[in-house]
Amino acid sequence: MNKTLKELKPGDKAVIKSVMGEGAVKRRLMDMGVTRGAEVLVRKVAPLGDPIEVNIRGYELTFRKSEAENIIVE
């Protein structure tokens, strides 16, 4: 079942399927290791509701929900 990373809740695990969008944001995400096949664990949501923190490739990464919307997971 495909969904976006934004729909996941803290504690949820998934595997990255693809990153949508284009340009600098997409490139940045891929550079940081958000590429196909990477396992991602949603750690938490910031106290004010955005951004979110995930664990990927053994480190902690944060991005906004608007970015998470472009990440397809399964």
Binding site: M32, E53, E60, L61, E67
Partner: peptide, 12 residues
């Protein structure tokens, strides 16, 4: 210009 992406490492 383009909004700078907020994609940041949270170092240990």
């Amino acid at each position: 210009g383009e909004v700078a992406p907020f994609v940041m490492e949270l170092p240990p």
